[in-house]
Amino acid sequence: MSKRMVIQVIPWVIPLLLLLIWQLASQFEILPTRILPAPSEIAAAAYTLVHSGEIWPHLWASTNRAVIGLFIGGGIGFMFGLINGVSKISAMFFDSSIQMLRNIPHLALIPLIILWFGIGEEGKIFLIALGVMFPIYLNTFHGIRSVDKDYIEMGNNYGLSNMAAFWHIILPGALPSILVGLRYALGIMWVTLIVAETIAAKDGIGFLAMDAREFMQMDVVVLSIILYALLGKLSDMMAKALEFRFLKWHLSYQK
């Protein structure tokens, strides 16, 4: 086995080992199925939902909410992070207000959001956008402010305009921090979606879990949790791929 294959296999050793222990504990009735169904039962429930096609509309609904909320909230956070990062005057006007809003737990606003938007899609997307906005804002702002001023001064000495210095020095220098903020925001996005979809949703993975709870279908409830975990892992892998794509010049991402 090559070194590359070993590196790819190692992260899956502990999850697979835990899965095996879980299956054996259920099989020998050490872990009652009324508390936690066996992995084989969850796999059977997944096969049933996939084969019937019932699962796909719920996956699409959840992914659609998450992506729309990420683009709206992430775009706003990125824009304010850029503006406040490059302009001290803008930071004086906006940063304190954004920091005050950041310290309000966004999930605590659910009763207010229901009064504003009702139980439709707007409230769920607003909640996700609010959750992802602040980590992207903070990391963008911090990344721009952390760029070495010597590089900017060197660019000015070579005759770079302010816009050219931004594109070739400031933004690339801030990109590692921005992408870290994106990865952090993706985690918050899925956590927020879980909560949002348990509030009078008509579709989505959260609705699937709540509907299964009513009929005591523990295997489907656990499957819903696993689906959230898999979606979170997939989005994190995509964010890591973006890091390796756009940070090839960075020493930490070179082979």
Rank of each mutant, 00 (worst) to 15 (best):
K149P: 01
Q8Y: 10
A66R: 05
L16S: 15
D150S: 13
F94Q: 01
A66Q: 04
Y253D: 10
A239M: 07
S40L: 14
E153I: 05
A108G: 06
E41I: 13
L138I: 14
V132K: 00
I113H: 10
N162V: 03
V67Q: 06
S146A: 15
F94I: 14
G53K: 00
G155I: 04
F246V: 06
A196F: 04
N157E: 03
E54Q: 12
L160T: 09
V147T: 01
H250M: 06
A165Q: 11
W167D: 08
L59V: 08
I89W: 05
I119T: 15
L179R: 09
N162E: 15
T63R: 00
I21M: 15
N139S: 10
L31H: 02
W22P: 06
M216L: 15
P105T: 03
G69R: 08
G232S: 09
W116F: 11
Q99H: 05
I188K: 00
A174K: 05
E243N: 05
P172F: 00
I225N: 07
I104H: 09
E243H: 05
I199D: 02
W56P: 00
G173K: 04
I119W: 00
S26P: 10
Y47H: 08
E243L: 06
F215V: 15
F71L: 15
Y137A: 01
H106F: 07
Y137Q: 01
K149H: 09
M237E: 15
S87R: 12
L59H: 07
L182N: 04
L49M: 06
I76D: 02
M133L: 14
G123D: 12
R65A: 00
I72K: 06
G73Y: 04
A66N: 03
F117G: 04
N84C: 15
A44C: 03
P15M: 10
L175Q: 12
H106Q: 13
M154L: 12
S224Y: 02
W190C: 01
E41A: 15
L230V: 12
Y253V: 10
L109N: 10
K3R: 13
V86Y: 14
S26R: 09
K3I: 11
F141A: 01
I188S: 03
A229K: 06
A43L: 15
L19G: 14
D95E: 14
L16T: 13
I178V: 15
F78G: 00
Y137N: 00
L230T: 05
M189Q: 10
R245V: 10
E29N: 14
E121S: 09
F80R: 05
S52C: 02
Y158T: 11
P39A: 07
A66M: 10
V13C: 11
A200G: 06
I104A: 08
W60D: 04
M189W: 05
N156H: 07
S224V: 07
H250P: 04
L247R: 13
Q99T: 11
G81F: 05
L138T: 13
H168F: 04
Y151N: 06
A43W: 05
I199K: 01
R213W: 01
L36N: 13
D95M: 03
E197G: 03
